[in-house]
Design a protein around this nucleic acid. Structure first.
Lengths: 123, 123
DNA sequence: ATCGTAGTTTGACATTCACCGTACTACGAC
DNA sequence: GTCGTAGTACGGTGAATGTCAAACTACGAT
């Protein structure tokens, strides 16, 4: 048998990743996704790099599988979008969708994260 | 032996509740505290009522003990402050502290919650 | 002193979470 | 084809979470 069939029947060769539609994104889910230091770092890094980053560009003090886990949480809760680009997986903030649903929220969180880092770093 | 001694040695008759100092409040903790539909409702209610509310003023579809739990999470993570006033326990948002640490954050969350409620309610 | 009201505490339970290591898959380059 | 690299999937572990019911405590009113 070929090794190609995926459980979901999705075509192999264009690995697709499920993203919630904009209208299915919930505030509590977004907050939950952001309520983890690791994921907060990821989101800050994505925001800082205006464009897309691959997973390895953000070095985190956790294992590869844990890293995958955090990126998936962010994607499934609607905070980032991920697409395969060759062998890499590029990640980007869903700024437009989040801004439309919860205007100002992400910027507020990012700003708060920056302020806290400065405060704790210099103390 | 009298029944009055509390485990912590706190004087009975002025039941005291531990609150984190402002500088100990962490963004991830605040987001985590807000990342629950029940607690979001509590916070919205407290924000709407400019002053203090006792626990029972916010009716939630959960048991009394679960309610206690959620209020404690909010307090221990620095989102609300609670004080005993006779037989009632009054709750208030720690607006000033949060505003100083994370300016605009709470308002952003509250606004997002309002927008989402309107969006989901009318659809 | 007794009672009702408001909220706590405890213990339990099912679920979820963050984390890991190992085995695996998909892709590009050689 | 074969190999290396990037990331996934699986299985597991210990801790935290949201929930409840039942017994309890503190306070004010009667």
């Amino acid at each position: 048998m070929p090794t190609v069939t995926t459980a979901t029947g999705a075509p192999s060769g264009s690995r697709s990743l499920p993203h919630p539609a904009r209208e299915d994104i919930r505030l509590a889910d977004v907050l939950h996704a952001l309520a983890d230091p690791m994921r907060l770092r990821i989101v800050c890094a994505l925001a800082a790099a205006e464009g897309e980053l691959n997973c390895a560009d953000i070095e985190l003090p956790v294992s590869k599988s844990t890293c995958t886990h955090h990126f998936r949480v962010l994607r499934e809760h609607g905070v980032i979008q991920q697409i395969y680009r060759g062998t890499a997986k590029m990640n980007g903030l869903r700024r437009a969708d989040l801004e439309e649903l919860f205007p100002g929220l992400i910027d507020g969180v990012l700003r708060a994260a920056g302020l806290q880092e400065r405060r704790l770093g210099e103390q």
